[in-house]
Design a protein around this nucleic acid. Structure first.
Length: 149
DNA sequence: GCCAACGTTGGC
DNA sequence: GCCAACGTTGGC
């Protein structure tokens, strides 16, 4: 089993939105490395849900992979923000996965807390200029985050 | 709103 | 294939 961290801007789609909707296709990822991580995701992999670009950035809850990678339909939708005219119907460029709500943390694991925790020092989210919306997480890091939530 | 750190694009 | 310009992300 793998563990992933996925970012979302709460103004766009928050953990509460996921709780309400129960599941959500994670469309719109337009970065090759993040795409490759999604393609590597397996059914029921754990997803740490991260709120970015907001007042309190941090890990706010847990989701799980409820559908493995499939063609992201938004790349062929000319009305979508995520439309990609260069993507080939026969060999689509972008994939997405479906994630389902598991839990919302009682306490947010805030970015400063993550940064201060020695056991979480190597998390990719802390890397300067990290802009990947999907990154792998070590099991030990996952356990540590669960502990403080 | 600022700005650093990227990834992508496109001219050559 | 190089690299400058540009756009985007995301913390602060």
């Amino acid at each position: 089993m793998n563990i992933w961290l996925m970012k979302s801007e709460p103004d766009e789609f928050s953990i509460d939105d996921l709780k309400k909707r129960k599941k959500e296709p994670w469309t719109g990822v337009r970065n090759y490395q993040a795409r490759n991580y999604m393609r590597a995701a397996k059914l029921n992999d754990v997803v740490l849900f991260y709120h970015s670009n907001c007042a309190e950035p941090g890990i706010v809850g847990i989701a799980r992979v409820s559908k493995v990678a499939f063609t992201d339909p938004t790349q062929f939708d000319s009305k979508s923000d995520y439309y990609d005219a260069k993507s080939d119907q026969l060999n689509p460029r972008w994939s997405c996965i479906e994630v389902s709500f598991v839990e919302k943390f009682k306490q947010v694991a805030t970015l400063p807390q993550i940064r201060e925790n020695k056991k979480l020092r190597s998390m990719l989210i802390l890397r300067p200029g990290n802009r990947l919306s999907v990154t792998p997480v070590e099991p030990s890091e996952y356990l540590e985050i669960k502990k403080q939530s």
